[in-house]
Computed example of a mutant assay.
Amino acid sequence: MVDDVADEAEVAARLDAADRALAELQADSRRRQAELKAIAADLPAVTSRRVVIKELAVSVRDAPDKGTVATRTLSKIARLPGEFIARLRR
């Protein structure tokens, strides 16, 4: 009987700790969500593909180390099929 009461008290304490941890995680999530909404509000409403490609071309043209930019771009492109397959498996 005493063990049952002790077990129930331990379970109740664990549940309380889990509830507090969950509440903290939810509060953190709400803060991050508010930050992301603020960032999204600062972004332009609509950007055409043409503008994005033009800005990309200008930034590549003005890059001081074009070799590194090209290498990183190619390595990212090479990873895309693997990442796509990994997403499909999930």
Rank of each mutant, 00 (worst) to 15 (best):
M1P: 15
M1Q: 15
V2A: 15
V2N: 14
D3F: 12
D3V: 13
D3S: 15
D4W: 12
V5S: 15
V5M: 12
A6M: 11
A6Y: 10
A6S: 13
D7E: 11
E10L: 14
E10V: 14
V11T: 03
A12E: 05
A12L: 06
A13Q: 07
A13I: 02
R14M: 06
L15R: 08
A18G: 00
D19Y: 10
D19W: 03
R20F: 01
R20Q: 05
A21N: 02
A21T: 01
L22H: 06
L25T: 05
A27I: 01
D28N: 12
D28G: 09
R30Q: 13
R30P: 00
R31K: 13
R32W: 09
Q33K: 06
Q33S: 11
Q33Y: 08
Q33W: 07
A34N: 04
E35W: 05
E35L: 08
A38Q: 11
I39H: 02
I39G: 00
A41K: 04
D42G: 13
P44H: 01
P44V: 03
P44C: 02
V46R: 07
T47S: 14
S48G: 06
R50N: 04
R50H: 05
V51F: 06
V52E: 08
I53G: 06
K54C: 11
E55W: 08
L56G: 12
A57W: 04
A57M: 12
V58N: 06
V60Y: 15
R61G: 08
R61E: 11
D62K: 08
K66P: 01
V69S: 00
R72Y: 05
R79N: 11
L80I: 11
L80G: 03
L80Q: 08
P81F: 02
E83F: 08
I85V: 13
I85H: 09
A86S: 09
A86W: 00
A86L: 01
L88D: 03
L88M: 10
R90A: 09
